[in-house]
Design a protein around this nucleic acid. Structure first.
Lengths: 150, 150
DNA sequence: GGTGAAAATTTCAACAA
DNA sequence: TTGTTGAAATTTTCACC
C-alpha cells in the first residue's frame, strides 16, 4: 500500500497545506537537506501518492457562488437505474461531486452554479426530467467554516 | 466583485489544473511575458481570488479509505452554539469539510478516517461529546461516480 | 542522507506603449 | 494602467560522496 515514515507524513502534511512551499523551506521543516527532501517528494509523486497540485479559488468572488447538496432517492435499486442516473449526472457540469451513499436515499450530489436561478433550472430541467429520480432534497450551503477538499 | 478578463480566467484555469505550473510556462500559455503574468497571479492572490495551493493525495493509498457524510442538528440556533461547534470541528483532522446548510439540520460534514472502527471512535468520542449536538445522521460513501473536488 | 554546482525560475526595478 | 526587458536573488535539480 503506502509504507510512509514520519518524515513522509510531515512532507505530505506541509504540501497539502501549501502546495507551493519551496523545497528549501520544506526541507527545513521536515529536517532534511533540500536534495534528500526533493528526492522524497519526487518519490511520492512517482508512487502516485501525491496526485497533483491545485490552486484553490474563492468561488464566491467568481461567478459560481451558489453551492448546494442534494440528496437523491431513486425509484428502485436496480443496477440499470443507477447506471442511467450516473450517466446523466456525469454529463452535467453543475454536478461537481456524486457520492453513492448508505441510508434512506441513494446519492448525495454537490452542485455549483452561478446563482439560485441557475440552480432552479438545473433542479427542474435536468434532475426533474430523469425518470429514475424519486425524491430530491436540497441543502443550500450558506457558509463553509472548514473546507479542505483536495 | 471579481472583474476578470479572459487572460485572468485562463490563468485560473491553468493553475487549478496544475498549481505548480512554472510561471514561465504559464505566461506562454496565456500569451504574456513572464513578469506580466506573475503580476497578474500575485494580484489574484492579493485579491483573495486564489486562496492557496494544495497538493492532492490519493487517499486510498494512505490509510484514509473511509469516507462518510454526517448531517448534524444542533440543540439551538444561537450564535454561541454555532461558534462552539465550529471551533471543535475545526480542530478535528477527521473533518475535511464542514458546511452550514439550510434545511432540517444545520451542518453537513465530510469525514475521512482510516476505517469504520476509527470512524466510530470519532462519531462517539468527538461528536457525541459535544453538548451542542442534538442529532447525527451518517451517510457512508460507498462509491463516488463523479468527484471534481478542487 | 548530504554537498556543491549548474540549470531553471522567480522576482522586481526601470522603461515603454 | 498594462506589458516588456533584463538582471539579481532564489530555487530546483542532479551527479557524486
Amino acid at each position: 500500500m503506502a509504507d510512509l515514515d514520519q518524515i513522509d507524513e510531515n512532507i505530505l502534511r506541509e504540501l497539502v497545506r501549501d502546495g507551493r512551499l519551496p523545497n528549501i523551506q520544506l526541507a527545513e521543516r521536515v529536517g532534511l537537506s533540500p536534495s534528500a527532501c526533493l528526492r522524497r517528494v519526487q518519490d511520492l509523486e512517482r508512487r502516485g501518492i501525491i496526485t497533483g497540485y491545485r490552486a484553490t479559488l474563492d468561488r464566491t468572488k467568481l461567478g459560481t457562488g451558489f453551492t448546494a447538496y442534494i440528496a437523491v432517492g431513486l425509484n428502485d435499486h436496480t443496477k440499470a437505474s443507477q447506471k442511467a442516473f450516473e450517466a446523466a449526472i456525469t454529463r452535467s457540469p453543475e454536478v461537481r461531486e456524486c457520492h453513492n451513499i448508505t441510508g434512506t436515499v441513494e446519492y448525495l450530489l454537490r452542485i455549483e452554479t452561478s446563482d439560485l436561478a441557475a440552480y432552479k433550472v438545473f433542479h427542474t430541467d435536468v434532475l426533474g426530467e430523469l425518470p429514475q429520480v424519486h425524491a430530491l432534497t436540497t441543502f443550500v450551503v450558506m457558509e463553509s467554516p472548514k473546507d479542505e477538499r483536495t
